[in-house]
Design a protein around this nucleic acid. Structure first.
Length: 457
RNA sequence: GUGGUUGUAGCUCAGCUGGUUAGAGCGCUGGUUUGUGGAUCCAGAGGUCGCCGGUUCGAACCCGGUCUUCCACCCCA
């Protein structure tokens, strides 16, 4: 049998010690923030029944689901005519489970299954990997983490406020300063389509308008025309596209523009209230940008829509979310509304990496390495190791007796700042030679003094 | 899913229009120093040139397929 080169599935990655230290820095910041705001953590299985997942993300979403082949004789129910009918006929017979595609649908399933034990409003957060059979590229992976926080069972706009506050807190802690939280409201989009005379077509409208930044107004007009929007309605859109003022001015303009649309005005009012709550909380509107053309998740969002973009980097949005009226309807539980959002850790990592703003040393570091020359030193070291750890000092004993050079090199590579050297002299006198690898200085002191020095450095 | 791109030592990359035993820097191992790391110097190990097939007297180089990487579209965190 030949030796094969190991490899990873497309779009997946290993994380080494440095990467994990950095990822944990991001994850800990997010977790701490969620908890500070009163969210409780849950987890759900990596795999769900395929029936739970399919049909929730549209046709394209279904294609991106990873399916899990049934165990045992997975082909036993497949008939010859099934094979001739194509893969869509065969799939349900060979796979009944799939990997989760996001955290929202499993959460909806969880809420429905535990409705009797949950007291509403329910604030939960969930930090787990999700899988998508997408084609990978920069900032896009087949396995990545989402950090969701959702509040279900209340219509209060305080939830929207808290989402803004949590985003601001996390970004502040991470040291990301140049970013925009784009906010909009589904009802405003609905209102716009009504006012321009294309009622009910906000979905199509937004798919086209969403590309404004990328392809420009000219191309957007072409696309709208292609989608059979009338020239009249397209021209009515013009003033919206060129809106470039502060939030208040934009809102005032739209109040006038949407005066004939009850839904549109409702959307404006909601957004105004969220901003008002922000001021009452004592926070500024800094980083909060009302973006009339922001459109996402239109199949389920019904109120506020959020998206966070870090400026001057090549990564797409790092966070997004919104309000939905009927999270659990597909699972037979009506009337559960909610609002939630998600941080993309992997993209936050890429953004911080690109900006070069990771703090210097959040690598998990040992404080001191105990080195020795022979079995006697090794045994003496073992006693000292116990004392150091009891004192809460992260320490390790070099596991082999051998050349001191090798042991020091190990400490150097692992960036361990202190080394304890135990030879015959130290053992006889019952003390310790402590070397500081950063300064190169070395002193022979008692165990108590050693512990004191290590704690204070 | 569509189109393009990439693959040579652990890492970053050279390698001329196909021509003997495929190179460099960094890293790694050992030595200079048998109780002292980082620097210098010396020596050494390490490659079925992504994989499979084809063209050729001869392929890292040309052709086909496949996998992988990155990019655009689609969509998304």
């Amino acid at each position: 049998m030949s030796i094969q080169k190991p490899s990873l599935p497309k779009g997946t990655r290993d994380f080494g010690p440095l990467q994990m230290a950095r990822r944990n820095f991001i994850l800990d910041t997010i977790k701490e923030t969620f908890r500070l705001f009163g969210f409780q953590q849950i987890e759900t299985p990596a795999m769900e029944n395929l029936s739970t997942l399919t049909g929730k993300y549209g046709d394209e979403g279904d294609q991106l689901l990873f399916k899990i082949l049934n165990n045992g004789d997975f082909i036993k129910d497949v008939k010859a005519e099934d094979l001739l009918s194509g893969s869509s006929r065969v799939l349900p017979k060979v796979a009944e489970k799939g990997l989760r595609y996001d955290l929202t649908v499993p959460f909806a399933r969880y809420v429905v299954m535990n409705r009797n034990d949950i007291s509403f409003p329910f604030k939960r957060f969930q930090i787990q990997p999700v899988w998508r059979a997408d084609r990978p590229q920069r900032g896009r992976y087949r396995e990545f983490y989402q950090c969701d926080a959702d509040v279900v069972g209340t219509d209060s706009l305080v939830c929207e406020l808290e989402i803004l506050l949590m985003i601001k807190r996390v970004f502040g802690k991470l040291g990301i300063t140049d970013y925009d939280i784009k906010v909009n409201n589904r009802k405003i989009l609905t209102g716009i389509s009504e006012v321009i005379g294309e009622k009910g077509r906000e979905g199509e409208l937004c798919v086209a308008i969403d590309k404004l930044d990328k392809i420009g107004w000219e191309k957007v007009q072409e696309e709208l025309a292609q989608r059979n929007f009338s020239p009249d309605s397209i021209s009515k859109l013009e003033p919206i596209i060129s809106l470039k003022q502060n939030n208040t001015d934009k809102l005032n303009f739209l109040k006038d523009f949407l005066s004939s649309s009850e839904t549109g005005l409702k959307g404006i009012a909601e957004l105004e209230e969220v901003l008002d709550l922000l001021h009452k909380y004592g926070e500024s509107e800094a980083h909060v940008d009302f973006d009339v053309v922001l459109a996402r998740g239109l199949t389920y969002y019904t109120g506020a829509i959020f998206e966070v973009k870090v400026n001057h980097v090549t990564i797409g949005s790092v966070s997004g979310g919104g309000r939905y009226d009927n999270l659990t309807g597909v699972f037979g539980l009506d009337g559960v509304s909610g609002v939630g959002f998600s941080f993309g850790v992997d993209r936050l990592y890429d953004v911080m990496d690109e900006l070069g703003i990771f703090p210097e040393s959040n690598l998990d570091k040992t404080k001191v390495l105990i080195t020795h020359f022979d079995d006697k030193g090794f045994e003496y070291g073992l006693q000292i190791l116990q004392k150091l750890r009891s004192a809460g000092i992260s320490s390790e004993l070099f596991p082999e007796t051998g050349k001191i050079k090798k042991q020091l090199t190990y400490a150097d590579k692992k960036q361990i700042p202190f080394v304890i050297i135990l030879g015959d002299n130290e053992i006889q006198q019952g003390n310790i030679s402590l070397k500081n690898l950063n300064s190169g200085t070395q002193e022979t002191v008692s165990l108590e003094t050693t512990i004191e020095i290590l704690i204070n450095n």
